[in-house]
Protein backbone atom coordinates (compact mmCIF):
# COMPACT_ATOMS: atom_id res chain seq x y z
CA UNK A 1 0.00 0.00 0.00
CA UNK A 2 1.23 3.45 -0.85
CA UNK A 3 1.42 5.98 1.94
CA UNK A 4 -2.00 7.34 2.76
CA UNK A 5 -2.77 10.95 1.88
CA UNK A 6 -6.15 10.92 3.56
CA UNK A 7 -7.09 8.78 6.53
CA UNK A 8 -10.70 8.66 7.65
CA UNK A 9 -11.46 6.86 10.85
CA UNK A 10 -14.87 6.11 12.34
CA UNK A 11 -16.32 9.26 10.79
CA UNK A 12 -19.80 10.17 12.02
CA UNK A 13 -22.10 13.00 11.05
CA UNK A 14 -25.59 13.30 12.46
CA UNK A 15 -28.11 15.96 11.52
CA UNK A 16 -30.74 17.04 13.99
CA UNK A 17 -34.05 17.20 12.16
CA UNK A 18 -36.25 17.38 15.25
CA UNK A 19 -39.41 19.42 15.20
CA UNK A 20 -39.21 22.71 17.14
CA UNK A 21 -39.07 22.48 20.93
CA UNK A 22 -42.69 23.53 21.45
CA UNK A 23 -44.00 20.90 19.06
CA UNK A 24 -41.94 18.27 20.80
CA UNK A 25 -43.41 19.20 24.14
CA UNK A 26 -47.03 19.55 23.02
CA UNK A 27 -47.14 16.65 20.59
CA UNK A 28 -44.80 14.55 22.71
CA UNK A 29 -42.59 13.82 19.79
CA UNK A 30 -39.05 12.68 20.41
CA UNK A 31 -35.96 14.30 18.98
CA UNK A 32 -35.09 12.84 15.60
CA UNK A 33 -31.67 12.55 14.13
CA UNK A 34 -30.58 11.63 10.62
CA UNK A 35 -27.49 9.47 10.80
CA UNK A 36 -26.17 10.61 7.41
CA UNK A 37 -22.73 9.15 8.01
CA UNK A 38 -22.55 6.58 10.74
CA UNK A 39 -19.06 5.40 11.40
CA UNK A 40 -17.04 4.95 8.23
CA UNK A 41 -13.31 4.59 7.80
CA UNK A 42 -11.04 4.33 4.75
CA UNK A 43 -7.67 5.47 3.50
CA UNK A 44 -6.75 7.04 0.19
CA UNK A 45 -3.21 6.55 -1.03
CA UNK A 46 -1.30 9.27 -2.87
CA UNK A 47 -2.15 9.30 -6.58
CA UNK A 48 -5.13 7.01 -6.14
CA UNK A 49 -8.75 7.57 -7.02
CA UNK A 50 -11.08 6.39 -4.31
CA UNK A 51 -14.75 6.35 -5.27
CA UNK A 52 -17.78 6.27 -3.06
CA UNK A 53 -20.84 4.85 -4.74
CA UNK A 54 -24.39 4.33 -3.55
CA UNK A 55 -27.98 5.34 -4.10
CA UNK A 56 -29.41 8.74 -3.20
CA UNK A 57 -29.48 9.37 0.51
CA UNK A 58 -26.72 6.93 1.40
CA UNK A 59 -24.49 9.73 2.71
CA UNK A 60 -21.82 9.83 0.02
CA UNK A 61 -22.05 13.59 -0.57
CA UNK A 62 -21.98 14.19 3.18
CA UNK A 63 -18.65 12.37 3.32
CA UNK A 64 -17.31 14.63 0.56
CA UNK A 65 -18.41 17.71 2.47
CA UNK A 66 -16.92 16.41 5.70
CA UNK A 67 -13.59 15.79 4.02
CA UNK A 68 -13.27 19.31 2.63
CA UNK A 69 -14.58 20.84 5.83
CA UNK A 70 -17.96 22.15 4.68
CA UNK A 71 -19.39 20.17 7.58
CA UNK A 72 -17.76 19.36 10.88
CA UNK A 73 -17.88 15.73 11.94
CA UNK A 74 -20.02 14.71 14.91
CA UNK A 75 -17.32 12.20 15.82
CA UNK A 76 -14.34 10.49 14.29
CA UNK A 77 -11.08 11.72 12.85
CA UNK A 78 -9.85 12.98 9.51
CA UNK A 79 -6.16 13.10 8.83
CA UNK A 80 -4.65 14.70 5.73
CA UNK A 81 -1.02 13.87 5.08
CA UNK A 82 -0.50 13.33 8.80
CA UNK A 83 -2.20 16.59 9.76
CA UNK A 84 -5.35 16.43 11.87
CA UNK A 85 -8.25 18.20 10.17
CA UNK A 86 -11.08 16.68 12.18
CA UNK A 87 -12.54 19.94 13.44
CA UNK A 88 -12.93 23.52 12.31
CA UNK A 89 -10.37 24.63 14.88
CA UNK A 90 -7.84 22.09 13.66
CA UNK A 91 -8.40 23.25 10.10
CA UNK A 92 -7.92 26.88 11.08
CA UNK A 93 -4.54 25.97 12.58
CA UNK A 94 -3.58 24.18 9.39
CA UNK A 95 -4.65 26.48 6.62
CA UNK A 96 -1.88 25.01 4.49
CA UNK A 97 -3.52 21.60 4.53
CA UNK A 98 -6.83 23.15 3.60
CA UNK A 99 -5.35 24.79 0.51
CA UNK A 100 -4.02 21.47 -0.66
CA UNK A 101 -7.54 20.11 -1.10
CA UNK A 102 -10.20 21.51 -3.40
CA UNK A 103 -13.65 20.48 -4.48
CA UNK A 104 -15.52 20.13 -7.77
CA UNK A 105 -19.30 20.24 -7.50
CA UNK A 106 -22.01 18.48 -9.42
CA UNK A 107 -23.88 21.33 -10.98
CA UNK A 108 -21.69 23.67 -13.03
CA UNK A 109 -24.68 25.99 -13.43
CA UNK A 110 -24.91 26.61 -9.70
CA UNK A 111 -21.28 26.49 -8.65
CA UNK A 112 -20.02 29.44 -10.71
CA UNK A 113 -20.97 33.00 -9.83
CA UNK A 114 -22.94 34.24 -12.85
CA UNK A 115 -21.86 37.87 -12.27
CA UNK A 116 -18.15 37.20 -12.34
CA UNK A 117 -15.96 36.85 -15.38
CA UNK A 118 -14.25 33.46 -15.68
CA UNK A 119 -10.86 35.11 -15.05
CA UNK A 120 -12.05 36.37 -11.67
CA UNK A 121 -13.62 33.02 -10.80
CA UNK A 122 -10.43 31.14 -11.53
CA UNK A 123 -8.21 33.80 -9.96
CA UNK A 124 -10.07 33.83 -6.65
CA UNK A 125 -8.19 30.93 -5.03
CA UNK A 126 -4.90 32.39 -6.31
CA UNK A 127 -5.64 35.78 -4.77
CA UNK A 128 -7.01 34.28 -1.57
CA UNK A 129 -3.99 32.10 -0.99
CA UNK A 130 -1.58 34.77 -2.31
CA UNK A 131 0.02 32.19 -4.60
CA UNK A 132 0.99 34.68 -7.30
CA UNK A 133 1.34 38.42 -6.86
CA UNK A 134 0.61 41.13 -9.39
CA UNK A 135 -2.41 41.32 -11.67
CA UNK A 136 -0.44 40.59 -14.82
CA UNK A 137 1.12 37.46 -13.33
CA UNK A 138 -2.28 36.27 -12.09
CA UNK A 139 -3.72 36.80 -15.56
CA UNK A 140 -0.95 34.68 -17.07
CA UNK A 141 -1.51 31.94 -14.51
CA UNK A 142 -5.27 31.93 -15.17
CA UNK A 143 -4.57 31.65 -18.89
CA UNK A 144 -2.35 28.64 -18.26
CA UNK A 145 -5.01 26.99 -16.11
CA UNK A 146 -7.71 27.54 -18.71
CA UNK A 147 -5.52 26.02 -21.39
CA UNK A 148 -4.73 23.10 -19.12
CA UNK A 149 -8.42 22.21 -18.94
CA UNK A 150 -8.95 22.58 -22.68
CA UNK A 151 -10.29 26.13 -22.89
CA UNK A 152 -8.47 29.06 -24.40
CA UNK A 153 -6.92 31.90 -22.41
CA UNK A 154 -9.22 34.33 -24.18
CA UNK A 155 -12.24 32.58 -22.64
CA UNK A 156 -11.35 34.27 -19.37
CA UNK A 157 -13.11 37.42 -20.50
CA UNK A 158 -16.44 35.66 -20.82
CA UNK A 159 -19.17 35.09 -18.26
CA UNK A 160 -20.32 31.58 -17.20
CA UNK A 161 -23.58 31.81 -19.16
CA UNK A 162 -21.62 31.97 -22.41
CA UNK A 163 -20.40 28.42 -21.89
CA UNK A 164 -22.05 25.03 -22.33
CA UNK A 165 -22.39 22.65 -19.38
CA UNK A 166 -19.22 20.76 -20.20
CA UNK A 167 -17.18 23.95 -20.62
CA UNK A 168 -18.50 25.27 -17.33
CA UNK A 169 -17.38 22.09 -15.62
CA UNK A 170 -13.95 22.73 -17.16
CA UNK A 171 -14.01 26.19 -15.59
CA UNK A 172 -14.78 24.70 -12.19
CA UNK A 173 -11.93 22.25 -12.63
CA UNK A 174 -9.61 25.15 -13.52
CA UNK A 175 -10.75 26.95 -10.39
CA UNK A 176 -10.09 23.86 -8.29
CA UNK A 177 -6.61 23.57 -9.80
CA UNK A 178 -5.86 27.25 -9.16
CA UNK A 179 -4.99 26.55 -5.55
CA UNK A 180 -2.36 24.02 -6.71
CA UNK A 181 -4.03 21.22 -4.77
CA UNK A 182 -2.84 17.65 -4.37
CA UNK A 183 -6.22 16.31 -3.50
CA UNK A 184 -9.52 16.90 -5.28
CA UNK A 185 -12.92 15.97 -3.93
CA UNK A 186 -15.28 15.50 -6.87
CA UNK A 187 -18.95 15.28 -5.97
CA UNK A 188 -20.78 13.81 -8.98
CA UNK A 189 -18.73 15.94 -11.40
CA UNK A 190 -20.33 14.49 -14.53
CA UNK A 191 -23.88 13.69 -13.45
CA UNK A 192 -25.30 16.85 -14.99
CA UNK A 193 -23.56 16.28 -18.33
CA UNK A 194 -24.39 14.41 -21.52
CA UNK A 195 -22.47 11.20 -22.23
CA UNK A 196 -20.19 12.60 -24.91
CA UNK A 197 -19.33 15.56 -22.69
CA UNK A 198 -18.99 13.27 -19.68
CA UNK A 199 -16.37 11.31 -21.62
CA UNK A 200 -14.44 14.54 -22.28
CA UNK A 201 -14.48 15.51 -18.60
CA UNK A 202 -13.50 12.03 -17.38
CA UNK A 203 -10.64 11.93 -19.87
CA UNK A 204 -9.54 15.41 -18.76
CA UNK A 205 -9.59 14.36 -15.11
CA UNK A 206 -7.45 11.34 -15.90
CA UNK A 207 -5.00 13.44 -17.89
CA UNK A 208 -4.68 15.94 -15.05
CA UNK A 209 -4.18 13.15 -12.53
CA UNK A 210 -1.30 11.79 -14.58
CA UNK A 211 0.30 15.19 -15.19
CA UNK A 212 -0.12 16.68 -11.73
CA UNK A 213 -0.09 13.55 -9.60
CA UNK A 214 -3.50 14.33 -8.14
CA UNK A 215 -5.40 12.19 -5.68
CA UNK A 216 -9.16 12.04 -6.09
CA UNK A 217 -12.07 11.30 -3.84
CA UNK A 218 -14.75 10.65 -6.41
CA UNK A 219 -18.43 10.56 -5.50
CA UNK A 220 -20.88 9.08 -7.97
CA UNK A 221 -24.01 7.03 -8.26
CA UNK A 222 -23.00 5.72 -11.67
CA UNK A 223 -21.25 2.38 -11.28
CA UNK A 224 -19.86 2.34 -14.80
CA UNK A 225 -18.23 5.75 -14.33
CA UNK A 226 -16.85 4.62 -10.99
CA UNK A 227 -15.41 1.48 -12.51
CA UNK A 228 -13.82 3.54 -15.21
CA UNK A 229 -12.06 6.12 -13.04
CA UNK A 230 -11.19 4.50 -9.74
CA UNK A 231 -8.43 2.46 -8.25
CA UNK A 232 -10.47 1.73 -5.15
CA UNK A 233 -14.19 1.71 -4.53
CA UNK A 234 -16.34 1.95 -1.42
CA UNK A 235 -20.00 1.01 -1.59
CA UNK A 236 -22.19 2.94 0.85
CA UNK A 237 -25.59 2.06 2.19
CA UNK A 238 -27.45 4.19 4.72
CA UNK A 239 -24.43 5.99 6.11
CA UNK A 240 -22.10 3.01 6.30
CA UNK A 241 -19.57 1.42 4.02
CA UNK A 242 -20.77 -2.09 3.29
CA UNK A 243 -17.88 -3.16 1.08
CA UNK A 244 -14.66 -1.52 -0.06
CA UNK A 245 -11.47 -2.50 -1.79
CA UNK A 246 -9.67 -2.59 -5.15
CA UNK A 247 -11.96 -1.73 -8.09
CA UNK A 248 -11.34 -5.00 -9.92
CA UNK A 249 -12.14 -7.02 -6.82
CA UNK A 250 -15.35 -5.17 -6.02
CA UNK A 251 -16.65 -5.37 -9.59
CA UNK A 252 -15.50 -8.87 -10.50
CA UNK A 253 -16.03 -10.64 -7.22
CA UNK A 254 -18.52 -8.59 -5.22
CA UNK A 255 -19.41 -10.17 -1.90
CA UNK A 256 -21.89 -7.94 -0.17
CA UNK A 257 -25.47 -8.69 -1.31
CA UNK A 258 -26.06 -4.95 -1.78
CA UNK A 259 -23.08 -4.56 -4.10
CA UNK A 260 -24.33 -7.56 -6.05
CA UNK A 261 -27.81 -6.08 -6.25
CA UNK A 262 -26.46 -2.77 -7.57
CA UNK A 263 -24.32 -4.48 -10.18
CA UNK A 264 -27.27 -6.60 -11.23
CA UNK A 265 -29.48 -3.56 -11.64
CA UNK A 266 -27.31 -1.76 -14.19
CA UNK A 267 -28.76 -1.93 -17.67
CA UNK A 268 -26.58 -4.02 -19.86
CA UNK A 269 -25.31 -2.61 -23.16
CA UNK A 270 -24.19 -6.05 -24.34
CA UNK A 271 -27.70 -7.42 -24.00
CA UNK A 272 -26.30 -10.72 -22.90
CA UNK A 273 -29.78 -11.58 -21.66
CA UNK A 274 -28.29 -12.63 -18.32
CA UNK A 275 -30.70 -13.64 -15.61
CA UNK A 276 -30.93 -10.91 -13.07
CA UNK A 277 -32.12 -11.10 -9.52
CA UNK A 278 -35.20 -8.93 -9.29
CA UNK A 279 -34.42 -5.90 -7.19
CA UNK A 280 -36.67 -5.67 -4.20
CA UNK A 281 -37.67 -2.69 -2.10
CA UNK A 282 -36.16 0.74 -1.67
CA UNK A 283 -33.68 2.51 0.53
CA UNK A 284 -35.30 2.98 3.97
CA UNK A 285 -35.36 6.32 5.73
CA UNK A 286 -32.10 7.20 7.46
CA UNK A 287 -34.09 8.74 10.33
CA UNK A 288 -35.30 5.35 11.38
CA UNK A 289 -32.94 2.80 9.84
CA UNK A 290 -33.68 -0.90 10.23
CA UNK A 291 -32.16 -2.67 13.22
CA UNK A 292 -29.09 -4.84 12.84
CA UNK A 293 -27.73 -4.73 9.31
CA UNK A 294 -29.51 -1.80 7.61
CA UNK A 295 -29.79 -3.81 4.39
CA UNK A 296 -31.64 -6.79 5.90
CA UNK A 297 -35.18 -5.87 4.73
CA UNK A 298 -34.00 -6.06 1.10
CA UNK A 299 -31.46 -8.83 1.49
CA UNK A 300 -32.21 -12.29 0.12
CA UNK A 301 -29.78 -13.83 2.63
CA UNK A 302 -31.05 -12.15 5.80
CA UNK A 303 -31.31 -14.24 8.95
CA UNK A 304 -32.32 -13.45 12.53
CA UNK A 305 -28.78 -12.42 13.32
CA UNK A 306 -28.86 -9.84 10.51
CA UNK A 307 -32.05 -8.37 11.97
CA UNK A 308 -30.59 -7.89 15.42
CA UNK A 309 -26.85 -7.42 15.14
CA UNK A 310 -25.00 -4.94 12.94
CA UNK A 311 -22.20 -6.69 11.05
CA UNK A 312 -18.59 -5.61 11.60
CA UNK A 313 -16.37 -5.19 8.57
CA UNK A 314 -14.10 -8.16 8.02
CA UNK A 315 -11.24 -8.48 5.61
CA UNK A 316 -11.95 -11.02 2.85
CA UNK A 317 -9.28 -11.37 0.24
CA UNK A 318 -8.39 -7.89 -0.96
CA UNK A 319 -11.63 -6.29 0.20
CA UNK A 320 -13.41 -5.35 3.39
CA UNK A 321 -17.00 -6.52 3.74
CA UNK A 322 -19.56 -5.90 6.45
CA UNK A 323 -21.97 -8.80 6.14
CA UNK A 324 -22.92 -11.73 8.37
CA UNK A 325 -23.50 -13.97 5.37
CA UNK A 326 -19.92 -13.44 4.25
CA UNK A 327 -18.64 -14.05 7.76
CA UNK A 328 -20.68 -17.23 8.11
CA UNK A 329 -19.64 -18.42 4.70
CA UNK A 330 -23.14 -18.90 3.37
CA UNK A 331 -22.79 -16.67 0.34
CA UNK A 332 -23.90 -18.08 -3.03
CA UNK A 333 -21.52 -18.01 -6.00
CA UNK A 334 -21.44 -14.78 -7.99
CA UNK A 335 -22.44 -15.31 -11.61
CA UNK A 336 -19.83 -12.80 -12.77
Amino acid sequence: MTDALLKVDNLVRHFDVSPPWLNRVIERRPKSVVKAVDGIGFEIGRGETFSLVGESGCGKSTVARLVVGLYNPTAGTLEFDGIDISSGAARARNRGAQRRMQMIFQDPYASLNPRWRVTDIVAEPIRFNKLVSGDAAIRVRVGELLEQVGLSAADGEKYPHEFSGGQRQRVSIARALAGSPEFLVCDEPTSALDVSVQAQILNLMKKLQRELGLTYLFISHDLAVVYHVSTKVGVMYLGRLVEWGETEVIFNAPRHPYTRMLLDAIPDLDMSGRARTPVAGEVPSPIDPPSGCAFHPRCPLATDRCRSEAPKPVSVGAAMVACHAVEENRLPEWHG
Binding site: V195, L202, L223, A224, V225, Y227, H228, T247, F251, I266
Partner: peptide, 10 residues
Amino acid sequence: GAIPTIGGRH
Protein backbone atom coordinates in the same frame (compact mmCIF):
# COMPACT_ATOMS: atom_id res chain seq x y z
CA GLY B 1 -17.41 4.58 -27.20
CA ALA B 2 -18.07 7.46 -24.82
CA ILE B 3 -20.16 5.32 -22.46
CA PRO B 4 -18.02 3.85 -19.70
CA THR B 5 -18.68 0.14 -19.31
CA ILE B 6 -17.93 -2.23 -16.49
CA GLY B 7 -15.43 -4.82 -17.54
CA GLY B 8 -13.92 -2.53 -20.14
CA ARG B 9 -10.37 -1.31 -19.66
CA HIS B 10 -9.60 1.75 -17.62
